[in-house]
Nucleic acid binder design. Sequence first.
DNA 1: TCCTCGGCTGTACGCATGTACAGTATCCTG
DNA 2: CAGGATACTGTACATGCGTACAGCCGAGGA
Lengths: 210, 210
Amino acid sequence: MRTAEEDMTARARLREAALFCFARDGFTVPLRTIAQHAGVSVALITHHYGTKDNLRAVCDDYALSQYRDYKLLAVAQPAAVGQSLADPAEASIMTVYMLRSLLDAGPAAKRFFDQFVEQVQLIMEASFAAGLVRASVMTPERIRLMAADTMGGLLIQFATNPPADPRDFISQAFSKDRLIAQLELYRDGYFTDSPLFDQYIQTIKEWDHA
Amino acid sequence: MRTAEEDMTARARLREAALFCFARDGFTVPLRTIAQHAGVSVALITHHYGTKDNLRAVCDDYALSQYRDYKLLAVAQPAAVGQSLADPAEASIMTVYMLRSLLDAGPAAKRFFDQFVEQVQLIMEASFAAGLVRASVMTPERIRLMAADTMGGLLIQFATNPPADPRDFISQAFSKDRLIAQLELYRDGYFTDSPLFDQYIQTIKEWDHA
DNA sequence: TCCTCGGCTGTACGCATGTACAGTATCCTG
DNA sequence: CAGGATACTGTACATGCGTACAGCCGAGGA
């Protein structure tokens, strides 16, 4: 009986303001900006959360828990893209917050990415059960690799074209054409079946035997 | 008659120190740290380069020009991985510097990534001419998509596991197993040929007709 | 009514950082 | 050998930041 009724207090509004500002400006955003965006004083932040690092840790945990509900990043799960989310704007903010954490290259980056891999794993298992996915891909290393490629593509998209408002990112990044192109690439692969190609791989495999 | 003979002066050593520190610590690294690493005073930096932004711009240009020589990031070009580079340590620093620029999500990110796309384009054209690559991939959008995935995977690798020394990144990131997994994924694709899958794509294509 | 406690604020301090400035040594040139 | 430019340094200043601290105010119980 704490989070439920207290969730509309200034404490919660402060956390939301922090999430938004972190997503929009990165983690170097001054506490003063966050306070101003929430319409309170700076001292109230330290009163509720103590230190800035702690505020960020709270945001991390919140984003991580929210992420379990929102099925974002539906590149690998096209069926989920169609269904409307509860609040697309907030979902977009959470996504950008996650990308910001990755861009920060700190400990939080590993946490978020590991959780993403976990979700990809679940999706892939379901897809494999449905006969959609090749058996050869169903190893932990390859699933992790695929997760890195997918999330990384999103990261590049964000880094090379950061939106002014984090709420606009999802609708901007997940264009229909991009989604189709990604899926068709994942279906057909890039390379042809070629002896030259297999020769490449063989060369690499015999690397240290030379 | 400037860069050639002056290239071993303190001015050049300063630029190298900046490159290294930017790669190791990110662009928030203090000028004092760079100066200390170069064994000179802070004032000398401003004397030679004026402002910190200008120093970074010089580093950007230098890294960009160096990048044309080093054929780094050879995920898409396995044949080039085998041949030893002139200076693996420096090549690794340049790579990490590039990744740092992308993590910074500034204007430089777009410059570096566009140049990377350009190189991927060339490699893909050569590979296509050799019969290695499917014709369906040879559109600007898909090449850009593939470049985003490839570079993004590297970005994730870096962000979730940043090396203490930027000189160690390449040998650490481009493991043989990882390379093989990536290539085989690119060859075989992720998905099976399935009517369910085609149905997904069809659904997406008819998106706005509903 | 009084009093206490928690939400909330304004001010101020300490610290890190980029940059400007005055000054010194060293080298090149006439 | 001058003398001026150039490499280089130490110091100091302005700024922006996180955080500590003392105090105000309003609600809620004794």
